[in-house]
């Protein structure tokens, strides 16, 4: 099949659609969890309504981060790419893979940040006096769960801008290997961030919940949260390593 410039465009638009489409689903669910828990918290503790409302909005903004990353990658795929016939199948595969990586990569972190923010709202309703400590812990926990979304963003940027043009005299066998390796890299980091994102979100959510019940144990709870999320993050780092190998070592 002769390669035409339309094939790069098809891959880029398909990638852009998948990216923001999948990313928007879970970002919406995550923000929705926070809003729901926030509304329930205000019913339980109407006196703290301003504090809960503020926490809810800040938590939602943090939970949207991964969705915004997906939007940025989509925009870059639509307007920020360089179409040239020399790019060949390498560029087409890289654009599709960039969309897949960031789209699936935003699923876990959004859900995790949503759970964490929801538990923070619930916990402020129980202990409005310690609201600031709980909100600080919520932001730290959400930042931890967004780290895996940042891994996906890094891989997407590499796929968008650091893939060379297809060499002219490449054999068909090598061409297939390289294009499929790029798609594999996108799938690897996309699915690989799902588990760690949700897991760290659960840790942060439980930590927020317990800060509201036992505010005196703040330092112990935070230490366990950091230790536990660092260990959960390890599988996301393995996926990042495999993605880099698939992009650069072949």
């Amino acid at each position: 099949m002769a390669f035409t410039i339309e094939q790069i465009q098809i891959a880029a638009y398909l990638g852009a659609g998948l990216c923001v489409g999948i990313g928007a689903v879970t970002t919406g669910i995550g923000s929705g969890i926070i809003a729901g828990e926030g509304a329930r918290a205000i019913v339980k503790q109407p006196k703290a309504n301003e504090q809960i409302f503020r926490t809810m909005l800040i938590g939602q903004a943090a939970a949207q981060t991964a969705g915004i990353f997906a939007l940025v990658i989509s925009m870059l795929l639509i307007y920020g790419r360089s179409d040239s016939i020399e790019g060949g199948w390498f560029k087409a595969a890289a654009y599709l893979a960039a969309g897949i990586a960031m789209g699936f990569g935003s699923v876990g972190p959004s859900l995790g940040a949503g759970y964490s923010g929801g538990q923070a709202c619930k916990s402020i309703a129980r202990m409005p006096k310690h609201g600031n400590a709980i909100m600080g812990n919520m932001l730290i926990g959400q930042a931890l769960s967004q780290t895996s979304a940042i891994f996906a963003l890094v891989v997407s940027f590499l796929l968008l801008y650091s893939i060379p043009n297809q060499p002219v005299d490449i054999s068909l066998g090598k061409l297939i290997v390289k294009t499929v390796a790029l798609l594999g890299a996108g799938l690897c980091i996309g699915f690989g961030t799902l588990g760690p994102g949700m897991g760290i979100g659960f840790v942060a959510g439980k930590a927020n919940d317990m800060m509201g019940r036992f505010p005196d144990e703040k330092s112990n709870i935070m230490r366990t949260m950091f230790l536990g999320s660092a260990v959960s993050e390890s599988t996301a780092i393995y996926s990042l390593v495999i993605s880099f190998l698939l992009i650069f070592a072949l």
Binding site: G192, G195, G228, S239
Partner: peptide, 17 residues
């Protein structure tokens, strides 16, 4: 690696929580 990271990530997060 992508699918394999899913289970441990969720599981370890649950343990730590």
């Amino acid at each position: 690696m992508g699918m394999g990271a899913l289970g441990p990530g969720v599981g370890e997060g649950f343990v730590a929580g």
